[in-house]
Simulated assay, not measured.
Amino acid sequence: MIELSRSSKIVVSKDVVSCDLGGETAILEMNEGVYYGLNEMGTVIWELIQKPITLQEIVNSIREEYEVDQKTCFDDLSELIEQMIKNKLVEVL
């Protein structure tokens, strides 16, 4: 597994398509043909990673909108991104 840091740059994989379902997101990883779903917060993050962005930039953006401390935000975000990497939904640049 890749060790993520605040400077890790993340972007959506090329083999993924997604659509908005009224505040939630449906994602299809085309190589495996597997669907995934994201809740409202996952959708916020998904929108941010459409272009390459660092984990710290994502944390900063989330903290501008939501009351969450830096460590909790980074830890939760890292866990989500690790799952996305494992499922080939995002790439680390």
Rank of each mutant, 00 (worst) to 15 (best):
Tyr35Thr: 10
Val92Ala: 08
Ile58His: 02
Leu4Gly: 03
Lys71Val: 13
Met1Asn: 09
Val11His: 06
Gly33Cys: 08
Glu91Leu: 15
Glu82Trp: 03
Thr43Tyr: 06
Glu67Ile: 11
Ile49Asp: 04
Val12Arg: 09
Asp75Trp: 06
Glu47Met: 14
Lys86Phe: 13
Ile85Lys: 03
Asp69His: 07
Val12His: 00
Asp15Tyr: 06
Met84His: 03
Lys88Asn: 15
Asp15Cys: 00
Lys14Val: 00
Asp69Val: 02
Lys86His: 13
Thr54Met: 11
Lys51Leu: 14
Leu21Ala: 07
Gly22Ser: 07
Ser18Gln: 03
Glu65Phe: 10
Glu65Leu: 14
Gly42Cys: 07
Leu93Arg: 14
Glu57Arg: 13
Glu47Leu: 14
Leu28Lys: 06
Glu24Pro: 00
Met41Gln: 10
Leu55Lys: 02
Ser78Trp: 01
Ile62Gly: 03
Glu40Phe: 11
Ser61Tyr: 12
Met30Glu: 12
Arg63Gly: 03
Pro52Asn: 12
Leu93Glu: 14
Ser13Cys: 08
Glu82Thr: 08
Gln83Asn: 15
Val12Lys: 10
Leu28Gly: 01
Gly23Arg: 06
Glu64Trp: 05
Arg6Val: 01
Gly22His: 05
Leu89Ser: 01
Asn87Ile: 01
Glu32Trp: 00
Ile62Ala: 06
Gly22Phe: 02
Lys51Pro: 04
Gln70Ala: 08
Leu38Gly: 04
Ile27Val: 12
Gln83Trp: 12
Leu4Val: 04
Tyr35Lys: 10
Arg63Trp: 03
Ile62Asn: 05
Leu77Pro: 01
